[in-house]
Amino acid sequence: MQPEPSRGRPDHNISMWGAPGSGKTTLLAALFIALTRRNDDWKIVGSDPASSDYLIDRTNALSRGKVFPEASMTLERYHWTLIGPAPQKTGFWGRKAKPGPPARIGLSMIDAPGGLFGTGRRPAGGVSAPDGAGDPRRQELLDNLERSRGIVFLFDPIREFTFGDAFDHMHAPLTRLAERMLASGEFTDGKLPHHIAVCVTKFDDPRVLETAEKRRLLTVDLDDPYRLPRVDSEDARELFRELCQVSASGNADMVLNALDQFFHPDRIRFFATSSIGFYVDRRTKRFDWDDFQNMVPGEADEDSRIRGQLHPINVVEPMLWLGQRLAAIRPATEIS
């Protein structure tokens, strides 16, 4: 954890949430690339030197070094600002938007080791440090969750095929969070005050893409020069449900129930996300159903690498959605 440079900057606190290896850190690392690949005017800047360095380092490692981030060991907080295009005549976010200056969304991102979301009863993969129930990092994570109003929840269908522990990594912190919210009187309508962006990660994996294809959930954005297949937010929930069917534990559908129990339906949105996206041949510059995997597996003791250019899918969208929703609800809170 880094010291919090409290400079009175209004940030919306957003927490990344997901089992170990579900792709939290990679998602953040891909954010800059994702923004540059968009042809709207959104950009991201670090709000402090450490956060800027992180953006630069991760972007380089990912796009040039073609390496994935290491499994996280500590809780990291990054302060970024999403700077959007100048709003047009009517305010982008309704009455609170002021025409003229570009929209800015301050993000304070918390990226924790996935193991901290576990039940604390058994060691979870990806974390070597002690992370039992008494782990101070666990407390800190909960503090942050309590303070934040936006959650990016990462559901890793590949992990779910093999371990089936997404529910375990969601349920424990969720009930704790509910406890705290209840105690602080913020559990008013029986729901948490948070917005949650549920990202079905690794959409680029053939098993995930194939599931979406079989369910006819794929669309292609006509403006997309690469013609990458994607799943609209409206259909992402169905993809999520479909992927739950093949969960190794059969508990995945409980994730859906828990989401509905704890979050207001308006505050849940699903995304079919891929941080690295599909492989696109540099000459044809078109998505190719015959050859779209963008990962090169590593030798036995090495990690996988990224094969070609990154074409992040639904990496910016959850952040923008959260940022816009949070900004619309109330002015950003000061970071304590």
């Binding site: 098993r207 159903w289 015959d290 995997q293």
Partner: peptide, 13 residues
């Protein structure tokens, strides 16, 4: 071509 083996397809197809 990409198949369930998830082995990357032959570059020469």
């Amino acid at each position: 071509r990409t198949d369930p083996s998830r082995l990357l397809p032959c570059p020469h197809r």
